[in-house]
C-alpha cells in the first residue's frame, strides 16, 4: 500500500508536467490552429539552454531560469511565421501540414542537441539547481517526497490556474476563446487573428520555459531524445482527452502520470513505458476522437 501511495504522489508530480505540456499544446492548437507536435522538443531545448547558462555562470540559478524561459519564447516566436505562412498559403488552415512542419522543426532541434551540446551525451543538472542535496522533505516509510516534487506540483497548479485565469477572466483570454470557438466570427467582431495567434505563441513559450525548469528540477537530467518521447505522449494525451479540450487534457495528463508511476512501482524500467504506451494505444484505438470530445 505504501508503494502505491508513494507512486501516486510521484505520478502527480510528473502528471503536472504532462498537464503543462498538454495545455501549451492545446492552446496553440485552439488559437494558432497548429498541431505543434514538437512543442516538447522546444521545452527540452530550453532545458539545455538552462544547463549551458549554469555552466557559463558557474551555477547562477536565476539566470538559467531566465535563459530557459527566454529561449522557449524566442523559439516559439521564431517558428511562428513558418506556420502562419503555411496557413495563409493554403487558404484555409491545413492542420496536417503544420504537424509535418513541426516534425521537421523537431528533427532539426533534436539532431542539433545530439551533435553539438555535451557531445550528444545526456546532461545532468547540479544539486543547487534541483535541490536534490536537501534530501527528502517528507519521509514516511517508503514514501519520500522531495523538494522538487512539491515545487513541480505547486508551480504546475499555479501555472495552470494562471493560464485558466488568463483564458476566462481577461480580454486576451476572451479573444483566445473566441478564435477557438469561431475564427470567422472572431474576425468579424474585430479580434486581430494574427496578433492574437502570435500572443498564443509567446504565452505557450512562457509556459514551455517554466515547464523546462520544472522538468530539470524533477528529472535532474535530459537527453536529446527526451523531446520526441514527450511529444509522443503529449499528442497521445491530447487525443485521448479530445484534441483541444483543455479540461480533458488536465484530467488525462494527471492520470497518465499516475498510471506510469504506479506501473513503474511494480514493473521493470523500459517495460513500464511499454505498458503505459500499450494502454494509450488501446485508448486511442477504442476512442480515436477522444473521451471528452474534440474542441476543434
Amino acid at each position: 500500500m505504501e508503494v502505491l501511495v508513494a507512486q501516486i504522489f510521484n505520478g502527480l508530480s510528473i502528471g503536472s508536467i504532462y498537464v503543462l505540456l498538454v495545455t501549451g499544446f492545446n492552446l496553440l492548437l485552439l488559437v494558432a490552429m497548429i498541431i505543434h507536435f514538437s512543442f516538447p522538443v522546444v521545452v527540452v531545448f530550453s532545458m539545455y539552454m538552462a544547463w549551458i547558462t549554469l555552466q557559463i555562470t558557474g551555477g547562477n540559478v536565476l539566470l538559467s531560469v531566465l535563459a530557459s524561459v527566454v529561449s522557449a519564447i524566442l523559439i516559439n516566436m521564431a517558428t511562428a511565421p513558418l506556420f502562419q505562412h503555411i496557413m495563409k498559403k493554403r487558404g484555409s488552415v491545413d492542420i496536417n501540414a503544420t504537424m509535418v512542419i513541426s516534425m521537421g522543426i523537431g528533427m532539426v532541434i533534436t539532431d542539433y542537441l545530439s551533435h553539438n551540446l555535451n557531445h550528444g551525451f545526456p546532461i545532468a543538472f547540479p544539486d543547487n539547481f534541483t535541490g536534490a542535496g536537501k534530501g527528502a522533505l517528507v519521509n514516511l516509510g517508503l514514501i519520500h517526497i522531495s523538494f522538487g516534487q512539491i515545487l513541480t506540483l505547486g508551480v504546475g497548479i499555479v501555472a495552470v490556474l494562471g493560464l485558466f485565469w488568463i483564458l476566462y477572466k481577461t480580454k486576451h483570454g476572451r479573444a483566445f476563446r473566441a478564435i477557438a470557438e469561431n475564427p470567422d466570427g472572431a474576425k468579424l467582431v474585430g479580434i486581430p487573428l494574427l496578433k492574437t495567434g502570435l500572443l498564443s505563441y509567446a504565452l505557450t513559450g512562457l509556459l514551455g520555459g517554466v515547464t523546462a525548469v520544472l522538468m530539470a528540477i524533477l528529472l535532474g537530467s535530459a537527453s536529446p531524445g527526451l523531446g520526441d518521447q514527450l511529444g509522443h505522449k503529449v499528442l497521445a494525451v491530447s487525443i485521448i482527452a479530445g484534441l483541444g479540450n483543455l479540461h480533458g487534457g488536465l484530467v488525462i495528463g494527471l492520470l497518465l502520470g499516475i498510471v506510469e508511476a504506479v506501473i513503474q512501482g511494480y514493473w521493470a524500467g523500459s517495460w513500464s513505458n511499454a505498458v503505459a504506451f500499450g494502454i494509450m494505444l488501446v485508448a486511442i484505438l477504442v476512442k480515436p476522437k477522444g473521451i471528452f470530445g474534440t474542441k476543434l
Binding site: I95, I239, M280, I284, K289
Partner: peptide, 12 residues
C-alpha cells in the same frame, strides 16, 4: 480516424 490519431497509433 483523423490524421493525428493515425500518426499517434503509428508512433505508439
Amino acid at each position: 480516424a483523423p490524421c493525428f490519431a493515425v500518426v499517434i497509433v503509428g508512433f505508439t
